[in-house]
């Protein structure tokens, strides 16, 4: 079976800035594929090119076999897009929005009406359907924003950070609906900077930073990059230069990075290493004020690959 999306060496620059710098990946049909990366990584730029809104400087991509360069209409016909910025007519009600967008996706008459009802059910806004979108909360708008892309049951759906800025409950229901989409046979290209989301949803994950794809694979494959290393976050009560040098040479410590007063360490086994860290701190005359131990995860992978934390 051909991949739902085949991305071939896409490049896009804005002036000097290389927003996307040679992206290549395949999204198999029926999978949830995540692009994980911090702000400015180039996720939205990638999505924009794949939805034919932006023309790539070079490279191409096939969406269900349609080239984004040569057959943009073909691409659009198989696509549903949930944009990062909410794109709705604020003066129209939820139902009116869905009805209008349904028409734009080629639905008409009774089929349209029925599908609008279904989507309202999916996004949990059946009882608020007559309310104007301008009066909705951020989370409700997000849900309508997603609903629009589901109307025509597209084969491929792009969701660009659909859970940004909403409460945990709405978020949960959105994540559930993404899983439901997959179960209904759709291919989902999902972008996020929340590693938990990527971890929970994705069949495959690609980590993006500064326009480059720095690693991809399943969650387990990615985590293997950092091996069985644990991650320790520490804060200390003083200027840390001396203790950092001491810790770097402590047996079992693989990496030490400092960021905004927090120290991130990758270590072989936190149970054995932690007491040595405290000893070194005491020797250096520094007090450790907090400790947080994390088992191997995508956060650690990102840290390992870029030297920075995923979240600001």
């Amino acid at each position: 079976m051909q991949p739902a999306i085949e991305v071939q060496n896409l490049h896009k620059s804005f002036g000097e800035l290389k927003a996307v710098d040679g992206a290549s990946f395949n999204v198999p049909q029926g999978e949830i594929y995540s692009l994980l990366g911090p702000n400015g990584a180039g996720k939205t730029t990638t999505i924009s090119m794949l939805s034919t809104l932006l023309r790539p400087d070079s490279g191409d991509a096939l969406v269900m076999g349609h080239s984004i360069r040569k057959d943009p209409m073909g691409v659009k016909s198989v696509l549903g897009v949930v944009p990062q910025d909410i794109a709705l007519y604020e003066d129209l009600s939820a139902r009116e929005n869905l009805t209008f967008w349904g028409k734009m996706y080629g639905l008409r008459g009774a089929a349209l009406k029925q599908r609008v009802d279904e989507v309202l059910e999916i996004i949990g806004l059946t009882d608020r359907q007559k309310g104007r979108v301008s009066k909705f909360s951020g989370g409700m708008k997000r849900r309508v924003n997603i609903g629009v892309a589901l109307l025509h049951k597209p084969k491929v759906i792009y969701m660009d950070e659909p859970t940004v800025g909403i409460d945990p409950q709405s978020r949960r229901s959105i994540l559930d609906s993404v899983i439901a989409l997959k179960n209904a046979g759709m291919t989902v290209l999902y972008t996020t900077h929340y590693m938990e989301e990527a971890q929970e949803l994705s069949d495959q994950i690609t980590i993006m930073d500064h326009g480059k794809l720095i690693a991809s694979g399943t969650h387990d494959e990615l985590v293997k990059i950092v091996g069985q290393m644990d991650r320790i976050r520490l804060t200390i009560n003083a200027e840390g230069a001396r203790v950092v040098t001491a810790w770097k040479s402590t047996p079992g410590v693989k990496q030490v990075t400092a960021e905004d007063g927090t120290l991130n360490l990758l270590v072989d086994d936190s149970n054995q290493v932690l007491p040595r860290l405290f000893d070194a701190a005491t020797t250096s005359g520094v007090r450790i004020t907090s400790v947080d131990i994390q088992l191997p995860n995508l956060e650690a992978v990102f840290l390992h690959l870029t030297g920075r934390a995923l979240r600001d």
């Binding site: 939805s51 034919t52 809104l53 209409m73 659009k76 016909s77 696509l79 897009v81 944009p83 910025d85 909410i86 794109a87 709705l88 007519y89 604020e90 967008w101 734009m104 996706y105 080629g106 629009v148």
Partner: peptide
């Protein structure tokens, strides 16, 4: 103007319109 600013225009351009 508000269609463009609210990004609805961009979204319209991702449909087959």
């Amino acid at each position: 103007v508000s269609e463009r600013k609210s990004r609805c225009l961009q979204r319209l351009l991702t449909t087959a319109t």
